[in-house]
Design a binder for these strands. Structure first.
Length: 861
RNA sequence: GCCGCAGUGGUGGAAUUGGUAGACACGUUGGACUUAAAAUCCAAUUCGAAUAGUAUUCGAGUGCCGGUUCGAGUCCGGCCUGCGGUACCA
């Protein structure tokens, strides 16, 4: 038997590609280039899951397609291999993270190769390789030299469980993103990168990028630009001014009190003796609160009066200064002017503490709410009265600028990037501390490698694990000979992934992170595919580094990733869940956490109305696909899919499921479907008895009908790959095979072209069929078939005929008459079925859309 | 709360600038092949009704309500639901 046997042909071609280095990136730069990039994986111990191959297959299809279209293609892969899991494993077992990491990479590489991705394996990068992180450290030194990396004592997100500091972005609902452990605020000395310096550029340059609009919006929100004013309030009895930022300077006359963040630097100075104790207690309580606690208390406002007063510069009134934790020290100036009339938070606070409220914008007559934040004209505001918000803002800013007590200002929500972690398994900072000052290690000392340590835990007092390596830590400053201590923090995982796309361009280059000549050729990345979870973290950080590298002349483009696509998550199989309470079935709509969940088979349920119910009852059940997770036991392992159906079926199915960007449930039955298709494609060309070409295959020239089928497929597949619509491309291939299987005779030339357009999707079977068709070379660099419009033309056009918008007949019109309106309409009106609807009626209008449809509008006579 | 995206058969999904809703696939049902099963092949499959007999006709139908249009899954207005992001950002 010579049936389609993926296991043998797939390993055969994988070996061929590797040995022949089929996908080695060309080094000539004469042809047009295409750089297609995957977000490189963290090589976890669990191996690949089915989510990985989704994006990877999409980019692989594009890479193979572009090669066949005459492009030089750069399609690399690598490993984002620093990170917490390997380190936690080291803490538990004492195994060096390097060993764990190598083992995991080995496994990932094998798995990726078993799917037949056309990566250039000579360009693999690994963030933990000293030859790689040498340049991560190099870039850090450049940031340091430019003043973009600084040390600061900041209240950080300290996670005691993980023994490390987390970036704001790594804290979700007051818990660590990794592991879900509680996070508290703790002041520590930290390295910080001044990403805020690039806030405006990061915002502006989003415009030119071909990224999903939703993702650009997420970045815009994250950067959070707001335009307003800074206003100085004189503090009564002190030679100090209190500066606030506000987006509503027009409401200044309504500022009836002020609030400082508990951590504000002026708090202690201005607090009056009789308030000292209350303020101190409040400050202490606020400091102890974790972020989680702060969030849980959002409903109730708390605060303490400092005893001090400020002067409202608009009307000279004395207003009290409070402290409250609803004002954040890290945004704006850490202080606000409170305008309860126009701000809901201030209104709540004013109500709680009986502070005066003055409306300065006229609410509409029927307004019943509290604070009014809508449009309206200014009231109770002297010279602003009667002005609309926008005009009032302009006028008050001009007035403040004249009085030198305020000015127009812009603020960003974006904060500087907390760049150090108290971990072992990360890039060491190329920094030494001499006489309490930090100092850069010289470039020729790079890479600065990690020392060997006995234990990977942080020291008890929060000092990073590197502090244990005393020999490494204690060094001398080569310049002065003074004793020095090495920095013991390490860089976060984002560091290595901020620039890896550049290293692929010239992985061996040792004159800089990237060879400038090749950088100019390959950059920017033409297509970048990865998960949406990196929308604001990785993608913002990488853009920031790229802009710095641009400013120092290392790269030639302002943005790294021209086009970006997020693949949607793959969920587990659809599940039906019924609910029981006290042994009785209850409807899913009335179920709560205490209800018992029962997994049901498809036979036990049926569709009723717009949901599913227990068969023969009205009891609703839950019908949905869930995220794959170990605990739910619905994880699909790509290895077993390959084992059962082959890598080509896995690839094909992942692309056939639906649009790339969409979230979609896995279906094993669906894999069987595409596997059947591959079997049909195989049998179209191969005689299963002999294993040779079928006797139906011959050198005859194709018929008109055959050319039409083929060229329709070529057209659809070509256009769909360009637009990343792989699901419909595959459907076109299926339609072709279904048609071709009816043919008595199959022209050799048609079979060849079909195999070529199948090849980006299912490369193994395509290579095998290509070889069987008598070719000796891989098809990877064959010319992509072009479609010919001539062959697509039909002999006749089918016109649906509508009467009053309802289809009543279908007319077959010869192609040469199809554009003749008179003729087609005459035929339509002659049709017996149509005539039934024309009796006793007057034709009001005749609509003729060439090649499409006819609509005859009538009304009763 | 705010921002973004999405709601189409039993299921995943398809539908050029508004032009026959349901391509392709899964599932299901029936049939062929087989001692039998698997595999394969063929046919049917949005729902409802009618006629009638192996085909045809009519009506409804793309989350809900309304609008524009000869014609709306697609455009406009108002909702509902789900998903993702974000949250005292002054």
């Amino acid at each position: 038997m010579h049936t389609y046997q993926p296991e043998s042909i797939e390993s055969k071609w994988q070996k061929y590609w590797l040995e022949k280095k089929t996908f080695k990136t060309p080094t000539d730069t004469s042809k047009p280039k295409y750089y297609v990039l995957d977000m490189f994986p963290y090589p976890s111990g669990a191996g690949l899951h089915v989510g990985h191959p989704e994006g990877y297959t999409a980019t692989d299809i594009v890479a193979r397609f572009k090669r066949m279209n005459g492009f030089n293609v750069l399609h690399p892969i690598g490993w984002d291999a620093f990170g917490l899991p390997a380190e936690q494993y080291a803490v538990k077992t004492g195994t060096h993270p390097k060993i764990t990491t190598e083992k995991n990479i080995e496994r990932f590489r094998e798995q990726l190769q078993a799917i037949g991705f056309s990566y250039d394996w000579d360009r693999e990068v690994n963030t933990t390789d000293p030859n790689y992180f040498k340049w991560t450290q190099w870039i850090f030194l450049k940031l340091y030299e430019k003043g973009l990396a600084y040390e600061d004592e900041v209240a950080v997100n300290w996670c005691p469980e993980l023994g490390t500091v987390l970036a704001n972005e790594e804290v979700i609902d007051g818990k660590s993103e990794v592991g879900g452990f509680p996070v508290i605020r703790k002041p520590m000395r930290q390295w910080v990168l001044k990403i805020t310096e690039y806030a405006e550029e990061l915002l502006q340059d989003l415009e030119g990028l071909d990224w999903p609009e939703s993702l650009k919006d997420m970045q815009r929100n994250w950067i959070g630009k707001s335009i307003g004013a800074e206003i100085d309030f004189q503090i009564q009895g002190f030679n100090e001014k209190l500066r606030v930022f506000t987006t509503r300077p027009d409401t200044l006359f309504g500022a009836t009190y002020m609030v400082l963040a508990p951590e504000h630097h002026l708090v202690d100075q201005i607090t009056t003796p009789d308030q000292k104790q209350a303020v101190a207690e409040y400050k202490e309580a606020a400091a102890l609160k974790s972020d989680l606690d702060r969030q849980e208390l959002t409903k109730e406002k708390t605060g303490v009066f400092t005893g001090a007063f400020a002067i409202n510069p608009a009307n000279g009134k004395e207003i009290p200064i409070w402290i409250a934790d609803y004002v954040l020290v890290s945004y704006g100036t850490g202080a606000i002017m409170a305008v309860p009339g126009q701000d809901e938070r201030d209104w709540e606070f004013a109500e709680e503490f009986d502070l005066p409220i003055v409306r300065t914008v006229q609410p509409p007559g029927n307004f019943e709410g509290k604070a009014y934040i809508g449009e309206g004209v200014a009231i109770n505001s002297e010279f602003l009265n009667g002005l609309k918000i926008k005009e009032a803002k302009e006028k008050i800013i001009t007035w403040l600028e004249e009085k030198e007590t305020g000015k127009k200002a812009i603020n960003y929500k974006l904060r500087d990037w907390l760049f150090s972690r108290q971990r072992y398994w990360g890039e060491p900072f190329p920094i030494i501390h001499v006489d309490g000052e930090s100092k850069a290690v010289s470039y020729d000392e790079l890479p600065l490698e990690l020392p060997e340590v006995d234990k990977y835990q942080p020291t008890g007092d929060g000092e990073p694990p590197l502090a244990n390596a005393t020999e490494w830590v204690n060094t001398t400053d080569p310049e002065t000979g003074k004793p020095a201590k090495r920095e013991t923090n390490t860089m976060p995982q984002w560091a290595g992934s901020c620039w890896y796309y550049l290293r692929y361009i010239s992985p061996e280059f040792d004159g800089g992170p990237v060879d400038p000549d090749y950088e100019k050729y390959w950059m920017p990345v033409d297509l970048y595919v990865g998960g949406a979870e990196h929308a604001v973290l990785h993608l913002l950080y990488a853009r920031f580094w790229h802009k710095v590298l641009y400013d120092i002349g290392v790269v030639s483009t302002k943005e790294p990733f021209q086009k970006l696509v997020n693949q949607g998550m793959i969920l587990g199989e659809m599940e039906f869940t019924g609910f029981k309470q006290k042994g009785e079935w209850i409807s899913s709509t009335s179920a709560d956490e205490n209800s018992e969940q029962v997994k049901l088979s498809d036979e036990e349920v049926e569709k009723k109305g717009d949901g599913f119910v227990l068969k023969g009852t009205d009891i609703r059940v839950d019908a949905r696909a869930h995220k794959m997770s170990k605990s739910r036991g619905n994880v699909i392992n790509p290895d077993s899919v390959i084992e059962q159906y082959g890598a080509d079926s896995l690839r094909l199915y992942e692309m056939f499921m639906g649009p790339l960007e969409q979230v979609k449930p896995w279906s094993t039955k669906g894999v069987e479907g595409v596997n059947r298709f591959l079997n049909r494609a195989w049998r179209l060309i191969i005689d299963e008895e002999t294993g040779e070409l079928r006797s139906e295959l011959s050198e005859v020239s194709p018929s008109k009908k055959q050319l039409k089928s083929l060229h329709e497929a070529i057209k659809k597949v070509t256009e769909d790959i360009e637009e990343l619509r792989f699901n419909t491309a595959i459907s076109a291939l299926m339609i072709f095979v279904n048609e071709a299987n009816q043919w008595k005779e199959i022209p050799h030339s048609v079979a060849k072209e079909f195999v070529l357009i199948l090849s980006p999707f299912a490369p193994h079977i395509a290579e095998e069929l290509w070889a069987k068709l008598g070719n000796e070379q891989t098809l990877a660099y064959e010319d992509w078939p072009l479609y010919n419009e001539e062959y697509l033309k039909a002999d006749s056009i089918l016109y649906p005929v509508q009467v009053n918008g309802k289809v009543r007949a279908n007319l077959e019109i010869p192609a040469d008459k199809a554009l003749d309106k008179e003729y087609v309409l005459k035929k339509a009106k002659e049709d017996t079925k149509v005539q039934n609807y024309l009796i006793n009626s007057v034709i009001v209008k005749e609509v003729f859309v060439p090649q499409r449809i006819i609509n005859i509008v009538v009304r009763p006579a």
